[in-house]
Amino acid sequence: MDIILGYVTTILVFFFTYNIFTLGLNIQFGYTGILNFTVITFMAIGGYVAAVLAMPKAPAGSGIYYILGLNLPWPIAALGGVLAAGLLGYLIGQIALKRLRSDYLAIVTLATGTLLYGLIGNGTSIFDGWQGLFNVPQPFAGFRTWTPLGYSIFFTIVTAVIFVFLWLFANRIYKSPLGRVMRAVRDDQDVVEAFGKNTFKIRMTAMVLGSMYVGVGGVLTIAYITALSPAGWTTGETFVVWAALLVGGRGNNFGAIVGSFLVAVVFNEATRYLPQIPAHPNLIPDIRYVLIGLAVILSVYFRPQGVFPEKKNTFFEVPLGDNSKTIEEHLAGGLSKVGEQ
C-alpha cells in the first residue's frame, strides 16, 4: 500500500510541476504569442538557484563545487530561484522582444538554452557541472519527524496548493484587461502598437511571468527529487511542455491541464514500462521523442486550437427575453438595464 501511495504521490508531483510549466508557456505563447523554445532552461535555472541558496557551502575537498551555498531557509531560496528564472526571461526579452520578427526571439531562446546547457555542464564550479547538484536539503524536513511517505504526501499537498494558486492567477490574468491586450498582441502586434499600447512592455510582462511560472516548477522539482544535473533538462523536455500545450489547447488553461496529464503523465509513464532492449538502451526514449515530435507537428496540422480550444469571451449582454425594445432603446436606458451574461 505504501509503495502504491508513494508512486501516486510522485506521479502527482510530476503532474503538477509539468502543469505549472505548461501554464507558464501558455502565458507566453497561448496568451501573447511568444515562442519560447527553451522552456526547460528556465526550470533548470529556477531549480539550481533555489538549491544553491538552500544548500550549505560545498565541503572542501569533496570534489563538489557550486556557487553561493548560503544555507538559507527554503521559502527565501525558492523565491530566489523563481526570481532568477524571471531575470533570465527579462534578459532574453531585452535582447529579442524589441520590434523583431518572432523568429528572432525563437532563435535567441534556443541559443540561450544551448549556451547555458554547455556553460553549466562544462563550468564545474557553477552548479557542479555534468555531475549536477545532489543532496539538496528538502524543504521543511526538520519541521517534524517525517516518515518518507508522510513527507511525500505533505510535499504533494504543498505542490497542489501552489498549482491551484498559480492556475487561478493565470485565469485571472486571462480575463483581465491585461490578458485581453496580451491576446491582441498575439493576434497582431503592429495594430496594438498603432493603438497606442507599448507592446514591448506587454510582451515583456508575459515573458517574465511565464519564466517565473516555469521557475516555480523548477524549484518544486529539485526540492522533491533533491538532485538536478544537465541530463535532467535536455532539449527534449522542452518539447514535452510544447506538446502538452498544443495537444491540450493553446490559450485555454483547462486544456493545459488535460495536455499535461495526457503527455507528461499518461504518455511518459506508459512508455516507461515498455520492455528495455539491452542492445539499444536508448531506443525507448528515442521512440518517445519521435512520438512527442509527431504530436507537436500533427496537433498543429489537424487541430491547432487543441482538444480544448480557447473559450469565446462574451461580455455583458442585453437580456434576450425582452424583445419589445430595440437594442437602441436598451442602450438609451444605459447599462443599468444591461445584465451580465
Binding site: R180, R183, D187, D188, T314, F315
Partner: peptide, 12 residues
Amino acid sequence: YPDMTVMENLIV
C-alpha cells in the same frame, strides 16, 4: 484580431 470576438476587438 482574428482569434478575438468583434466585441473584444473593440474593447481592447
